[in-house]
Design a protein around this nucleic acid. Structure first.
Lengths: 188, 188
DNA sequence: AATGACATGTAAGAGGTTACATGATTGT
DNA sequence: ACAATCATGTAACCTCTTACATGTCATT
């Protein structure tokens, strides 16, 4: 039972309309950048696997100028498999915050360094939040399928909630560390 | 330049006091469960690598009853390497929310299913939040090194912020979907 | 006598990243 | 002429998970 999520992401994207590997990559980058990632070296081999499994079909572009495009479409079996995946419970969420490992060891380095880490976290966060806002804007102009748009906006909203929470944590935590620094100084 | 975070997590834990592989695993599970993970099959090989690199040393327990314990201590080079890692910027945060992929394709399945996914997300979230609270409680009784405790509590606090944000999102999103369902029904 | 915690490891494979490699087309 | 974007892929490597494998010690 190989539960390869990458396969389902591709099926999901193709369930909207036929696309090339390049298109799929671009869509993942621009539309789910904040909560999923997929590189070309995953996409191209996976497309071949899905084709071999009969879940998608390949069509080579015939017009001269687009000869090197391979456009993939989802098959009926593909749709069936996608839907059954959608009915199964999702895998648990994972976070990886390397910065927390470093903050955790804050007693090993100067407090200024820890504050720097938190400021950098905030910068990354702000960038991702802005990215989400620009994706949101882009989707609202490009997506006219209101049903797809509705659900896509919901997922972006979680990103906003999480980044906002992380930003708030960063602000209050920097203040706490600075107060802590003061206390230490007073004691000494 | 192999930037193996697992190595630094182990060095970080050993910077407090000598421990066995089993201890390290337990500590990661109980103290950083929400934002980092490490299995035995990563820990034991990594300990051997770190020993070979001279960053830690092994001591076999001599008393009869604890013969099978291998206690590792950090060396001066280990401390130096750990500190220089702590001064470097952290890797960017990664989230993996499979459930968002499924919600994103919400137009492919009944809305009830999507609501179920969100409810399950909320359940997972609540469990993790409770876990953080119990870690917090445990730490406050066991850690008397106030400096370590201070930083450890800061990292737990981010977990609390994130899980609270996800919970709030889940509540409002379920309501939104139910309203959306209503609207669809009225139109038809 | 059985269960759970303590304690250490190996093997296989899934999943993912980075670097490499190539070439056409489009816009400035 | 140059840069950016479009377009497809391979090879090596790293990381991490899952399943397997073994044995002790303490408690109930």
């Amino acid at each position: 039972m190989k539960e390869n999520t990458t396969e389902y992401v591709i099926l999901g994207i193709l369930s909207n309309k036929p696309r090339t590997g390049y298109d799929i990559h671009k869509l993942v980058k621009t539309r789910m950048g904040s909560f999923w990632d997929m590189s070309f070296s995953q996409i191209y081999p996976t497309l071949r696997i899905l084709e071999k499994e009969g879940l998608i079909t390949k069509k080579l572009e015939t017009n001269e100028r687009e000869q090197n495009r391979k456009v993939y479409s989802i098959t009926n079996e593909g749709i069936t498999k996608l839907r059954s995946w959608l009915m199964e419970p999702a895998k648990p969420e994972t976070f990886k915050f390397e910065v927390l490992l470093k903050i955790n060891l804050g007693d090993q380095v100067p407090k200024e360094q820890i504050i720097k880490h938190i400021e950098e976290l905030k910068t990354r966060n702000t960038a991702q939040l802005e990215n989400i806002l620009s994706i949101e804007k882009e989707m609202k102009t490009q997506l006219n399928d209101s049903e797809r748009l509705f659900f896509a906006l919901l997922t972006l909203s979680l990103g906003k909630h999480l980044h906002r929470a992380a930003s708030e944590w960063a602000d209050t935590t920097i203040k706490l560390i600075e107060q802590h620094k003061q206390k230490g100084a007073n004691k000494a």
